[in-house]
Design a protein around this nucleic acid. Structure first.
Lengths: 202, 202
DNA sequence: AAGTAGTTTAACCATTTGGTCAAATATAAA
DNA sequence: TTTATATTTGACCAAATGGTTAAACTACTT
């Protein structure tokens, strides 16, 4: 019973996650989510009181999936290039395991930035530490001079964009060949890591 | 009269563009668009028969804004590094002039990929030419070896992502300081150009 | 067996939303 | 001025949508 409850509740959350990620908050229909979960629409309201609450639960879960692996790496003591390499690999891994997350988060954050960004702050990621390490490495001459924030965004861009823009890029550069694009994404960690390190090697 | 018509029709398109870009197709309401244009809702249906048709007009216009400046550069004969530099500058310029376009296009393309991608094909962008130039430059030893497609996506990523992910990044890296982020974006063309060229210089 | 609390469903409701239509208004041609 | 045509509006409609409720069902306790 408690098992069944967990199952239903979780099944709803998974179904809602799939629908929300595909269609966004406003594009998703409660009936659609209920169908996807194989249950009655009223059950959605029984477990999560409103569409808004259900959405927030999904969004929180999404943030949870995206954040924690990364934090460990950023907070570890490690030579810069090693850390960059490990971060890129870890981050690409998370993205490939949740390919719809980036667009989902970016789009919903545009819809309701302040409220949803708070969910991120709860996860407690602090960029200042890694930005500081960038500066130190520059002072020590271990890397070229570049604005730490630009470098940070460069790394994120190179990882996130190819996953988020897949529907566009797969068609644009790969003739809509899904397998080819998947292979392409699987090479990405190597390519990005090499690209970034080449760009900043002194 | 014909003037007034053009004015009304265009005013509607502009209003619709603003609303659609902010809220997406499914998040936008016809009434909201009518209000934004300062007219009656029926007028929307008088000029554009349905929401879907109105959306398609907006999307087409968006593609038009995004594409043409770029094509010229890609099709020009120029040394590789110069071409990359000019492309990055031109592309960043277009993006900064239409900051909501990227997310709009990416999100809507995820909703209805095949139909909307055709609108791009009409614009007639052909990646094969620039990919080919990448290969030739590698053979001549003018640049490091890297998969042309990866390089292409790297450049696009570095330009598009910081604009598309602004609501996230401005808060994450800049304490939600809008002016600081704008300044950051204005430096981008320089930074990206240098970053890319450093990464591939032999 | 009966009671109790949690779970699920079908029927229903109020509001929103895209869309229609006939009437009204402006515009230009005759 | 009259006539024809294009533009604009307000009232209205049917469908979709998020949400409610009372009843039915289940499982567990006594």
């Amino acid at each position: 019973m408690n098992e069944q409850e967990k199952n239903t509740e979780e099944e709803i959350l998974d179904a809602a996650s799939r629908i929300f990620q595909k269609k966004g908050m406003s594009g998703a229909r409660m009936q659609e989510i209920a169908d996807e979960a194989g249950i009655n629409k009223s059950l959605l309201h029984y477990y999560y009181r409103s569409k808004d609450k259900l959405f927030l639960s999904v969004f929180r879960q999404a943030v949870k999936n995206l954040i924690p692996g990364i934090r460990n790496i950023l907070f570890t003591d490690m030579p810069l290039f090693d850390k960059l390499d490990r971060f890129i690999r870890e981050y690409m891994g998370v993205l490939l395991g949740n390919p719809f997350l980036p667009m989902f988060i970016l789009h919903e954050l545009q819809r309701d930035p302040d409220r949803l960004f708070k969910e991120f702050q709860k996860a407690g990621i602090e960029p200042s530490r890694i930005l500081h390490q960038f500066e130190q490495s520059m002072e020590k001459g271990e890397m070229r001079r570049i604005s730490p924030r630009h470098l940070m965004i460069n790394v994120l861009s190179l990882c996130v964009f190819p996953v988020a823009a897949r529907p566009m890029m797969q068609r644009f550069l790969f003739d809509n060949d899904a397998e080819a694009y998947q292979a392409f994404l699987n090479e990405r960690a190597d390519v990005v890591s090499e690209f970034v390190i080449n760009a900043i090697r002194p």
